[in-house]
């Protein structure tokens, strides 16, 4: 359902990704690991269509369609979701209003009728139970004044609400305590289904204890230098990234 081949990309004329191949089938969970600066977040942002990330070569195919020329919102409406490493705070914009607007935009793209405020609240509150979020966070400004854990829970809540086909989690585990980590992974596990795929970008293996990936790729200097299964993640945790260079 999602594949990139020979992907080369640069940021500010600096080459970051140098030929990446990934093929994600429906229902699969792929983990992308690698040291800092290896290009993990670049890959995530590129797939989501962030400005300033230039695709030099290769293609990004999602459900048979090359999405590399699409606007970010068009990709989102196709069902690509990016859980940000650093979600921005937008003061003044009510979290609930934002969620409802996003939900209806995505629903419309799926050919579904928009939900009115009452239905949307009911739907969102239902999803909130899964991430154990305090309901007053809905009435606050989007991510403004949220703690690190609250922001990440909010990202997972958005994922639960928008029900994407492909969810990319960019370092979602960074800065989380063990309880929050559990909540985040519960949310992801709840979402796992035969027609939904995940790409989990992470530096550490601990999130993968909770969300067992089908494949693990190691990204270094803009290339995937090793692929394997969950065992590979365990080995990386034990021995670090050094042995891969030999």
């Amino acid at each position: 359902m999602f594949s990139v081949s020979n992907l080369h990309a640069s940021v500010d004329d600096k080459k970051i990704l140098k030929g990446i191949e990934i093929d994600v089938k429906p229902g699969e969970v792929h983990a992308i690991m690698g040291p800092n600066g290896s290009g993990k977040s670049t890959l995530a942002n590129l797939v989501a269509g962030k400005d300033g990330y230039t695709l030099d070569e290769g293609s990004i195919i999602f459900n048979g369609q090359d999405i590399s020329g699409l606007e970010p919102e068009e990709r989102a409406c196709l069902g690509i979701f990016l859980a940000f490493q650093y979600p921005v705070a937008i003061s003044g914009v009510n979290n609930m209003v934002f969620l409802q607007a996003a939900l209806n935009s995505v629903r419309q793209a799926r050919g579904e009728l928009p939900l009115d405020a009452m239905d949307a609240i009911a739907f969102i509150k239902d999803r909130m139970k899964l991430v154990e979020m305090k309901s007053d966070l809905l009435q606050r400004s989007l991510n403004a004044g949220f703690s690190g854990g609250e922001k990440k829970r909010n990202e997972i809540l958005q994922m639960l609400v928008l029900e994407p086909k492909l969810a990319i989690l960019d370092e979602t585990d960074s800065g989380l305590d063990i309880d929050a980590l559990k909540t985040v992974s519960d949310g992801v596990n709840h979402m796992r289904s035969p027609d939904r795929s995940f790409i989990i970008v992470t530096h550490y293996q601990r999130l993968l204890d909770h969300i067992k990936p089908d494949f693990v790729h190691v990204l270094k200097d803009g290339k995937i230098i090793k692929s394997g299964n969950y065992e590979l993640a365990l080995k990386l945790e034990k021995e670090g990234y050094g042995w891969l260079d030999q």
């Binding site: 989501a48 269509g49 300033g52 606007e71 970010p72 989102a76 979701f81 937008i90 935009s105 928008l162």
Partner: peptide, 16 residues
């Protein structure tokens, strides 16, 4: 740009 991208990633158009 970050704020706009965040919203657009969630499916809103730039104008929305």
């Amino acid at each position: 740009e970050e704020e706009l991208f965040y919203c657009r990633q969630r499916g809103l158009t730039e104008e929305q």
